[in-house]
Amino acid sequence: MNILVSIKQVPDTKVIKVNPKTNTLDRSSAPAILNPYDAHAVQEAVRLKQKHGGKVIVLSMGPPQAANAIRKCVEIGADEGYLISDKKFAGADTLATSYALYKAIEKLEKEQGIDLVLCGKHAIDGDTGQVGPGIARRMGMPPLTNVINVESVDTDNKLIRVHRKIEEGHEVIESPLPCLLTVEKTINEVEYAPLPNMLRAARYEPYVWSVDDLEDVDIKQLGLKGSPTIVGTMWPPEKSSGAEMIEGSTDEQVSRLLEVMNDTQELLAVKGGDGA
């Protein structure tokens, strides 16, 4: 079973800084990492490969440095990595991104056959979760989003059964293969890379494809030009008038807090009622 995992290199949003003068992100302030959800997708692919055979192919779109994210996937156990990298892809929103990735998957599907596509639930820089379902729609595959467990894979009958997280719990859903899953972090624990994987990853060079390496590409659907959404304005988060600061000694602060809590709601009474 050949499994393709679509991954993204992202800035670590926990440490990224905003330039207060320009209201733009200072990307140099944040290290680039493999999107954490994608690491779980790769881990799941490796787990399925160990059970059912085949190989794990990783695909990413991004600048040449994104090869580092692919190396990280090789550490986890991916067999092959492909990076589609071209100025024509730049500025893509989720629709244009899913188009470019779809074109690359189509080519890989033709060359080697793909039985399953995995993606992380979303990327932490955009938090959209839109690219996975977009790829599925373009490939004509059923998308199964928010997957928390792959219950079974029936390679003979080409069926997969997974658990999808929904608001009230989860649903058990069966789909024919090939299909596309987007996975939650709870699907597995990403294991520490074994030494041979680390050695292999350090030297690993992914295949790099430009637009010209893909087939039947409609240039108008790529990059900024192919993106229906644009960023209008960016601004730092709103600052309100600010809080009424409660000053004084700790005791004074505490007694003022009690007043506030008593005034604003009958919260203490609520509690008293509960206890009665």
Binding site: K14, I16, V18, L25, V231, G232, W235, P237, E238
Partner: peptide
């Protein structure tokens, strides 16, 4: 970007 900035799309 993880809530570091607001953007109008």
């Amino acid at each position: 970007f993880g809530g570091n900035i607001m953007a109008t799309i």
